[in-house]
Amino acid sequence: MSYGARVWDDSGNLVMDTTTFTYQVIWQGTLDFSDTSGSTAKVITVSIPGYDPANCVFMMIPTRSQDIQLAEGDATGNTKSYPYATPSKDQVVVRSANPQANLGNTNQTRVVVRGYAVRFKV
């Protein structure tokens, strides 16, 4: 008997088959940018042994309802945006703003998110 899940698209093509791969959450934690202010970006470096961008993914999910943008034209949109993540071998660097941003002209994120690093194995 096989185990897992299979997902097909609307054309009947198999697009995901967890009977041929597994995944493992290798890190999870809270990333708090609620105290971000001024013109210096807040940077959090997360050490994740075994993390490799070739077979891992890093994702963030808001933890507070006030961190969800209500509409596209919301004036506080930047303060509710997702942090900027840069994955590399064994770590992910998460910033309150894009490293190329001119922080004098833009607001930084002030969200609290739950971060997850997931490794896929074939």
Results as ranks from 00 to 15, higher is better:
residue 4 G to Y: 04
residue 4 G to F: 05
residue 5 A to I: 01
residue 5 A to H: 10
residue 10 D to S: 14
residue 17 D to A: 04
residue 23 Y to M: 10
residue 27 W to K: 06
residue 29 G to A: 02
residue 34 S to Y: 03
residue 34 S to F: 00
residue 35 D to F: 04
residue 35 D to R: 08
residue 35 D to I: 05
residue 36 T to A: 12
residue 39 S to Y: 11
residue 42 K to M: 14
residue 42 K to E: 12
residue 42 K to Q: 15
residue 44 I to H: 12
residue 45 T to N: 08
residue 45 T to K: 10
residue 49 P to V: 10
residue 50 G to L: 10
residue 55 N to L: 01
residue 56 C to M: 07
residue 59 M to G: 11
residue 60 M to D: 03
residue 64 R to N: 15
residue 64 R to C: 07
residue 65 S to Q: 14
residue 69 Q to S: 12
residue 69 Q to E: 09
residue 70 L to Y: 08
residue 71 A to P: 02
residue 72 E to T: 10
residue 72 E to Y: 13
residue 75 A to M: 07
residue 76 T to N: 15
residue 77 G to P: 00
residue 79 T to S: 14
residue 82 Y to I: 04
residue 86 T to M: 11
residue 86 T to C: 02
residue 89 K to D: 09
residue 89 K to W: 11
residue 92 V to R: 08
residue 93 V to L: 05
residue 96 S to F: 00
residue 97 A to H: 06
residue 97 A to T: 08
residue 98 N to S: 13
residue 99 P to N: 07
residue 100 Q to D: 14
residue 100 Q to P: 00
residue 100 Q to G: 04
residue 101 A to S: 15
residue 101 A to G: 09
residue 102 N to R: 07
residue 102 N to L: 05
residue 102 N to E: 13
residue 103 L to E: 03
residue 103 L to A: 08
residue 104 G to Y: 09
residue 106 T to H: 13
residue 106 T to E: 14
residue 107 N to D: 15
residue 109 T to V: 08
residue 111 V to I: 04
residue 113 V to W: 03
residue 115 G to I: 08
residue 116 Y to N: 03
residue 117 A to I: 03
residue 117 A to P: 01
residue 118 V to H: 06
residue 118 V to M: 12
residue 119 R to C: 12
residue 122 V to E: 14
